[in-house]
Design a protein around this nucleic acid. Sequence first.
DNA 1: TTCGATATGTTGTATGCACATAATAATCTT
DNA 2: AAGATTATTATGTGCATACAACATATCGAA
Lengths: 230, 230
Amino acid sequence: MSSHSHHTIRQAILDRIQTGEWALGELIPGEAMLADEYGCARTTINRALQGLANDGVVIRKRKGGTRVCDMPVRQAKFNIPVVREQVEALGSVYRHQVTRRVEKAPPTAVQKRLGLAPGTKSLQLDTVHLADDRPFAFETRWVNTRAVPAILDAPLDEISANEWLVQTVPFSSGDVVFCAVNAGKDVAEALGAREGAAVFVIDRTTSLAGEFITTMQLYYREGYQLHSQL
Amino acid sequence: MSSHSHHTIRQAILDRIQTGEWALGELIPGEAMLADEYGCARTTINRALQGLANDGVVIRKRKGGTRVCDMPVRQAKFNIPVVREQVEALGSVYRHQVTRRVEKAPPTAVQKRLGLAPGTKSLQLDTVHLADDRPFAFETRWVNTRAVPAILDAPLDEISANEWLVQTVPFSSGDVVFCAVNAGKDVAEALGAREGAAVFVIDRTTSLAGEFITTMQLYYREGYQLHSQL
DNA sequence: TTCGATATGTTGTATGCACATAATAATCTT
DNA sequence: AAGATTATTATGTGCATACAACATATCGAA
C-alpha cells in the first residue's frame, strides 16, 4: 500500500483491466473510490488514469466517469529515424549520393501538396542512401524554397537533405503514409533491385507553422521492415 | 490566464522551440525561471515540460535540466484498426470467410514465436476479409490454444478471430512489423491479385502476461495505405 | 400533464505548495 | 591526489484545494 507512485497505481489498474476485472467499455470506479482503495490522494489516481487515457487504454468523460476503452484499435508508436542512423545502427558505413538536383516547377500533384502557386519553382532532389556502398534506400524529394531558401546554399553532398532539414527546421509537423509498391524502372535502378520488386515506401510531407516545407518519398530496399512495440 | 494554463504554456514553449529560440540539443531554462517568466507555479511548468517530454520533444534529467531533444527521429502514432472497421469506414459491406481451420503442430518458426514446446498443437486459421464481396485482406494466423482454449468453441464464422481475440483478451501487448512483399501464389489467389504484386503486410504477435497468444500476418490488397499524423 | 429552465451533485481538470529524489559540484579527509 | 562526504540545484511526486462540465433531478408555469 505504500508504493504510492502514480506509476505503480497506473500499472496496478492496467493489470486489473488486463485480467478482465473490468470488461471492455465498462465503467471503472471513480477517482475517489480508487483513491480510498489505494490509500492515496485523488490527484494521484487522476494522474494514473490520465496516463492510461493518453495511451488509449481508457476514455474519460466529465461526469461520465472513466471507462475501459472499447476501441478495438490498437495504437502503435513508431520511431521514424534518419536513414543514416538506420544504416549505422546496422553496423554499416553510411554514404549518400545526390543523383538529381534541379530547380523547376513541380508537377501539379506536388504543387498542391506543398501549397504552391502554379509555376512556382521548387528544388527537386533525388538521393540514393548507401549502406557499405550498397543501395539501401532511394529518396525523391521536393523542397519548398520559399519556406527554406537557405537550402540552396546547403552542402548537400556532405549532409543529406533530410538531415539538413531536420537540423534547420526541427519539429515540423506533417503526415506520413506507409505503403507497398512494385518498384518502377527508376526506383529499381536506383536500388539495384529488379523491376517489380515489392518495396516499402514512406511518404512524408512536413510543414511548419502552416507552411509546407518538403514532401518526400523514401523507397526502401526489399526486405526492409518497420518494427514497433505496441 | 485562465484554466488551460499548462496546455497554453506547453504550446508556448513548443513554439519557442520551433522558432529556433532554443536550438537542437540545447538546454532550455529551468522550471523555476520559466515559472517566473510565465507567472505561474513551478509545478505548472513541470506539467507542460513533462508533456513535451512525453511527446519526445524534450529530454529531461534531474539536475541536468531540460534540453531540446536532439534525436532526429520523429515519432508517429498509428491506429491499427480491426479490419472490419476499416472496411466499414470505407462504406463497404464487410464479410469474412475462414478458408482454413486446422489444429496441428506449427512450423518451428511459429512454434518459437509462440514459445511453444515442440510438437504442441495450435490452431491455424486463414481468413479472407471481404469488402463488398471483393477480397480486401488476407489473414493467416496461429493461435496458442493453451493460452486461449475457448477459441476452439468460438463461432468464427460469425465473428472474425481477430475480433474475438480483441474482445476476449483485450489489451494484450506485443509487437508489430510492417513490410512489403511480393504476393506469393497463395496470397495472390486469396486476394484476387496477380502473383508478384506488392502487398503491404502487418505482422503482429501478441502476448498477455508473458504468455504468447497469437501470431498473425495480414496481407492487404494492393494500394493499401497506412496513414498517420506526426 | 408537459415542457423548459434551473438547481444540484458527481466526476474529471487544474494549480500551487511542500517535500522527495537524483545527479552533479564542491569540499573535506587521508 | 584519490576517495568519501556534503552541498547545491535541478526535476519528480503527493496532497489539498478550487474549478468546470455534464447528467440528472427538481421545480414552476402554461
